[in-house]
Amino acid sequence: MLELLLHIILSAASAIGFSLITNAPHRAAGIIGITGSLSWTAFWVLKTYAHVNILIANMIGALIIGLLAYYLSRKYRLPENIIYIPCLVNLVPGGNAYRTILYMVQNRFIDSLEQAITTFLIAAFLAVGLFSAQYLISIVRGIIYFRKPKM
């Protein structure tokens, strides 16, 4: 339970920290903190307690970011970009990328290749998650749009 609290706080802090680096507007800080911490916590709970495959967990994290960013950016009149960028930094596969370099230095090329492929797959599934968020939104909007004239 304490660990969960720690995860929530640290992920919010790190998303807000990245928004400071990229000079995001002041009024977006709270939104970014909430989105970043929700997406990371969902990813971590799925990975640790539900034992979901790490790729699927990453995808669901990115999906949550996409849906929340769509909703919150319409509500608070911000560009979606501002919410996307700082929240994704938690999910970036930094550990795998580091191990790719580490094994390369230690002449363990097979392990290095394995880590490189894992890094690429995680990044690709993050993109899949973001894209499926956009796709879901466009489908829902399309259904609403087509049903209106008939009424």
């Binding site: 640290l10 802090a13 790190s14 807000i16 920290g17 990245f18 928004s19 400071l20 680096i21 930094v89 938690n90 930094g94």
Partner: peptide
């Protein structure tokens, strides 16, 4: 902010 990001 960079310090906060480092506490991943």
């Amino acid at each position: 902010g960079a310090g906060l990001v480092s506490m991943a």
